[in-house]
């Protein structure tokens, strides 16, 4: 991996090609969480990869873990930038429960696709904070900085996201 990183820093095409194989699945998972469909995720992935490879000179990572963390950060930043372009909407909890037919009843049976669908049912800010906090492991201070909101708001969004997710699952259970 060190050789690959070095090769990418030297703009070697072979290393970059190989790195795409290593990096793509990992980054795609992130992209998929921040976008609503596969196509958007793919576009975001491509954009992120271009940004990563073109800014390798700024990367100080030497091993796989730090390099992947750096790439992850870039991808999340790109995703948020895209969202900012479109305009971050503070949505109210809309009644999207009709989509819940696709949500399995028992949480243990949930797969990645189901969780994604659930996440996308949440208001954008809630899903963003849930993603950043629970899955990507950012602190509330960091999230507040990234989303340009107060720390307390970030906490609130997370709490609401959790409640909303629970509600969505429970409602589905009752309906069934």
């Amino acid at each position: 991996m060190k050789k690959l990183i070095k090769g990418c820093k030297e703009l070697e095409r072979r290393s970059q090609r190989e790195m795409v194989d290593h990096l793509s699945p990992f980054l795609y998972n992130i992209c998929r969480r921040y976008t609503h469909n596969h196509e958007d995720a793919k576009d975001l992935l491509q954009e992120s990869l271009i940004h990563i490879f073109n800014n390798m000179d700024k990367c100080q990572a030497r091993d796989k873990a730090t390099f992947f963390a750096w790439s992850k950060r870039i991808t999340i930043n790109r995703a948020l930038a895209q969202k900012r372009k479109k305009g971050l909407e503070v949505e109210s909890m809309v009644d999207n429960t009709h989509h819940l037919l696709i949500v399995p009843r028992i949480q243990s049976q949930l797969n990645v696709q189901d969780i994604l669908k659930l996440l996308h049912l949440l208001p954008q800010n809630q899903s963003l904070v849930f993603n950043l906090s629970v899955i990507d492991g950012y602190s509330h201070a960091e999230i507040a900085k990234i989303l340009e909101v107060k720390e307390s708001s970030s906490r609130t969004f997370l709490t609401r996201a959790r409640q909303s997710l629970q509600q969505l699952i429970q409602k589905q259970e009752i309906d069934l």
Binding site: L11, R13, Q16, R17, Q46, I50, F53
Partner: peptide
Amino acid sequence: HQPELNTNEIWEAIEPKLKKK
């Protein structure tokens, strides 16, 4: 989670936009 991705397709899309040596 291991998504099914066609990395060749991704590479072909990004390769022309990468900085050259």
